[in-house]
């Protein structure tokens, strides 16, 4: 029996746009994943600590405030520091194409913008899980 994929969906910083995070959390749940939703205004430290305690496979950040270039790398560094460099860090929101590319070059992502179909997000996470985690499930 294969175990469910565990995902932490979080909203870092002061950004109050939580519609996207909720839509994504619900879509991943409906795709059979166990989604831990931590609510608004999370610090990178809170996100990394929750990811470790919950032993998630994936951390997804939703950022529409423009602070993605600091928040994504910070969470990434904290996960590495905690010994969890095996976690997929992904997310979405209002993020210009060139920033997405820059972050991806640092091992973050893939990232998704407005209008992405939730099925694409599900497919991406499933494919990543099958490639990286399936052997230990």
């Amino acid at each position: 029996m294969s175990r469910p994929i565990r995902v932490l969906v979080a909203k870092p910083g002061l950004d109050g746009h939580d519609r996207g995070a909720k839509v994504v959390a619900a879509a991943l749940r409906d795709a059979g994943m166990e989604v831990i939703y931590t609510g608004l205004h999370q610090t990178p430290e809170m996100i990394a600590s929750a990811a470790v305690q919950e032993d998630v496979d994936v951390v997804g950040l939703s950022i529409l405030s423009g602070a993605h270039m600091t928040l994504f790398p910070r969470v990434h560094d904290l996960l590495v520091e905690a010994g969890r460099d095996d976690i997929l860090l992904t997310g979405g929101g209002i993020i210009p194409k060139e920033d997405m590319a820059a972050l991806e070059a640092r091992g973050i992502g893939k990232l998704f913008g407005p209008g992405t179909s939730t099925q694409d997000l599900v497919d991406f996470i499933r494919a990543w899980f099958a490639e990286h985690k399936a052997q230990e499930a």
């Binding site: 469910p4 959390a25 619900a26 991943l28 749940r29 409906d30 795709a31 059979g32 994943m33 166990e34 989604v35 831990i36 939703y37 931590t38 609510g39 999370q42 809170m46 600590s49 929750a50």
Partner: peptide, 16 residues
């Protein structure tokens, strides 16, 4: 679906 939305942590921020 076998999926779940685990939301209890939202209220536990203070001690997280």
């Amino acid at each position: 679906t076998g999926g779940a939305l685990l939301g209890d942590r939202i209220r536990m921020e203070e001690v997280a």
